[in-house]
Simulated scan of single mutants.
Amino acid sequence: MVAHFRMSDLGALSYYLGIEVRQEKEVLSLDQNAYASKLLERSGMAKCKPYVTPMEERLKLTKASTTAKVDATLYRSIVGGLRYLVHTRPDIAFVVGYVSRFMEDHREDHWATVKRLLCYIKGIVDQVIVFS
């Protein structure tokens, strides 16, 4: 028995998995502004002061940290959200990869780095990636 599938034209793509897509004559732009704003709200950082850099210069984090442990669910949830945000924010890829190393045993200094990154995102929340 052969299954028959029908394709229908749903028009131009405008939204896909949290990524807003705008297609113009010779330009395609992608953004996750709404997703980034929701991530800031979820983390309690929506009203933070924006930073101009995503991470402190020469920051050294270690798995042997002795600072206090932080809420595992919150840390993993926010870092997971940041990993998804990298799709349209390649400028945060290094820091997200760095804080992802501490998913098993995350401490206060690791969380402080995540919060710093969220403050950076607050300052760039309206940026868009453009392909011409």
Score class of each variant (00 low, 15 high):
M1Y: 06
M1L: 04
M7E: 01
S8V: 05
S8D: 00
S8P: 02
D9H: 07
L10C: 06
S14F: 02
Y15S: 01
Y15G: 00
L17G: 05
G18H: 11
V21D: 02
E24F: 08
E26K: 11
L28H: 02
S29G: 07
S29P: 01
Q32M: 04
S37V: 01
L39E: 05
L40W: 08
E41W: 02
R42E: 08
A46D: 08
K47V: 02
K47E: 12
Y51F: 12
T53A: 12
E57P: 09
K60F: 14
K60N: 12
L61W: 11
A64W: 09
T67M: 15
K69V: 11
K69W: 05
V70E: 11
L74R: 15
G80P: 09
G80K: 11
G80R: 14
G81P: 15
G81W: 13
L82F: 06
R83A: 03
Y84Q: 10
L85A: 09
F94C: 13
V96N: 07
G97H: 00
V99N: 04
S100M: 03
R101Q: 06
R101D: 00
M103W: 08
H106G: 09
D109H: 06
H110M: 03
W111G: 00
L118N: 07
C119Q: 12
C119D: 07
Y120R: 07
G123D: 13
V128S: 14
V128R: 15
F131K: 13
S132H: 10
